[in-house]
Every structure is written in structure tokens, then in C-alpha cells.
């Protein structure tokens, strides 16, 4: 099941109360999953700024996973609703600009969904692996722009 290869590189932005805790539960339940995801904990999905996602791709992430509390479960009442609205606009924009939609994955994983967390991570890792590395965004920094 596990691959030794550290590729693909996947960054996850998760909220503290649901998905991070759900990942803790996966651990407590000793569920195994692929090791490619590196998680950054934030208090709430509301704190997840699209620039984080841009920066992760710029820095060479092959995939970005965003996850938080289900609608109605937000620890801060409405952070995930505001986040959802931003994501709608943002993921459509990225898609339009040619960043493959399958490299950015959004999910709701509650504190009790350790199993779902594992499934989401595994499925996304496999999907990104199948897509291969995403170096376009990272590498274009090496190309300086020459105008006129």
C-alpha cells in the first residue's frame, strides 16, 4: 500500500476542529494511509486564503487538499460557509487558467470521520500520482520575462 517515494508532494490546509481532529482519530484507530500529505493546521477553513494555495503550487506542490468541518458544524458558526463561497470562485478561476482541477481537492471531514480522512487522502494521492508531477507553476519562475 505504502510507497517509499515522497512524490507526489501534497499540501493539506485543514481546520483544527474537524479535519485535523479527524486525522488524529485516523491515528488513534491505527488506520494506514499514504504518506505524501503534509498538513498545515489552521483554526478554521475560513482562515484558508487562496494565496496559500497559489503559494503551495508555486513552491512545487503536485496537489493541494483543503478540508474542514461539514456545513453546519463549523466551530466558528460560519467560517466554512464563507470559505465555501470563496472556493467556488477560486477553483473555477484556477480551472479556467489551466490548473488541472484534479490537483486541487476540497472535502468536508469531521472529527469523527477518521475513515473518511484516510479515504480522501488515499484517493487524492492516487489521483495526483496518476497525473504526474506538476512543475509548470514552480518552474516558470526560472524564466525571466523579456519585454521589448
Amino acid at each position: 500500500m505504502e510507497n517509499k517515494n515522497q512524490d507526489p508532494k501534497i499540501v493539506a490546509f485543514v481546520c483544527n476542529w474537524c479535519t485535523y481532529t479527524g486525522a488524529d482519530l485516523a491515528g488513534t484507530s491505527r488506520l494506514k494511509y499514504q504518506p505524501n500529505v503534509r498538513m498545515i493546521k489552521l483554526p478554521c477553513t475560513g482562515r484558508i486564503d487562496p494565496v496559500f494555495i497559489i503559494k503551495a503550487f508555486e513552491k512545487g506542490a503536485d496537489g493541494v487538499l483543503v478540508s474542514g468541518c461539514h456545513p453546519g458544524d463549523c466551530h466558528y458558526n460560519a467560517g466554512n460557509y464563507h470559505a465555501r463561497r470563496r472556493w467556488i470562485m477560486f477553483h473555477k478561476l484556477l480551472d479556467y487558467l489551466g490548473i488541472d482541477e484534479s490537483r486541487l481537492h476540497f472535502s468536508w471531514v469531521s472529527a469523527s470521520e477518521g475513515k473518511k480522512f484516510v479515504d480522501v487522502v488515499n484517493a487524492f494521492t492516487n489521483k495526483v500520482k496518476a497525473k504526474g508531477p506538476f512543475k509548470k507553476y514552480e518552474n516558470i519562475n526560472k524564466e525571466f520575462v523579456i519585454n521589448g
Binding site: 505504502e2 510507497n3 517509499k4 515522497q6 486525522a23 488524529d24 485516523a26 491515528g27 488513534t28 491505527r30 488506520l31 494506514k32 494511509y33 504518506p35 503534509r38 498538513m39 484516510v118
Partner: peptide
């Protein structure tokens, strides 16, 4: 622990993470 040792089996991979 919850995010590494309990969820991965391979020592090299887990240590790198």
C-alpha cells in the same frame, strides 16, 4: 504520533515525514 507513527508502517517514510 497520530499523524505519523500510527498511520505509516515504513520506517524511512515515516521518519522523513
Amino acid at each position: 504520533r497520530e499523524h505519523v507513527s500510527w498511520v505509516h508502517d515504513d520506517m524511512d517514510v515515516a521518519t522523513d515525514k
